[in-house]
Design a protein around this nucleic acid. Sequence first.
DNA 1: GTAATACCTAAACCTGACTTTAGGTCAAGG
DNA 2: CCTTGACCTAAAGTCAGGTTTAGGTATTAC
Lengths: 146, 146
Amino acid sequence: MYTIGQVAEMFGLPASTLRYYDKQGLFPGLERTSGIRRFGDTELEALRVIECLKKAGMEIKDIRLFMEWCAEGPSTYPQRKAMFEERKAHMESEIESMNRALDMLKFKCWYYGQLNQGNSEAELKALIPDGLPEGIKEAYENAHAR
Amino acid sequence: MYTIGQVAEMFGLPASTLRYYDKQGLFPGLERTSGIRRFGDTELEALRVIECLKKAGMEIKDIRLFMEWCAEGPSTYPQRKAMFEERKAHMESEIESMNRALDMLKFKCWYYGQLNQGNSEAELKALIPDGLPEGIKEAYENAHAR
DNA sequence: GTAATACCTAAACCTGACTTTAGGTCAAGG
DNA sequence: CCTTGACCTAAAGTCAGGTTTAGGTATTAC
């Protein structure tokens, strides 16, 4: 069992954030001894899941719903699975669209690298898209695909 | 040249957002005829870059800085390149951490899939980590790696 | 015993990124 | 003419996700 300060340290979060999460209902079964929060393994695992779901773009209120399902027991297994499946799909498409943005960045890095080596904008634009070098061409096309 | 309404339609954004971007200085050279904004190719390309930089996690005020550099001409090529390089690195690490979260989701999907098929939590926990099936094992390890 | 810590609460505050509102201009159509 | 629709502005409102503040308790260290 850990105090809020120890957990804050472990996860690199301010204690105020943990109190905020608690207030939002993200630790439904959290115990206290004389008013002081006691974080156990359940809460640590919950926090790991919270960090994951946040990265997956989920809002606090939806994470709370999930935590409530967990507290309700096995009858909610199907809902929990469905929520993870939905998040997985969402996240896969999010990562894909980030990769397209990343290709734009790669192209821009190359482009400004060329400009810094003295090539003119006009020269470079003449290369688009067929005269672009290996790798950059793919990034360019990816970035500009709809 | 396009009106704000046409651009809004093209990019699937509300016109209010475009006005907001303009007010934040994201279109430094934007022309007007008798008060009405006229969006040209420069602004359309700017918008594409804005969408990319936003996805890369950049704040409006930093995007403005970039747009100001663009308006200043070739003397700012090095700063612009540095900004893109920094964003590229940031985004690569962001995507990596999202992939770790995705592995957690994959594992959880499998886990709840098993539970829905009648396996008990105790049975499943006994499989961690060496009895996990192909693919799931990797996801589990990835998700729990520090 | 008293001072420093670590914990607690409720409530106010903050930030970024928009969105909405309220009021106004201008051109075209009936 | 007068109404409709597309544009304009400044200013206020909204929302999520915290953070800060102000005031209080409880334990440990000297």
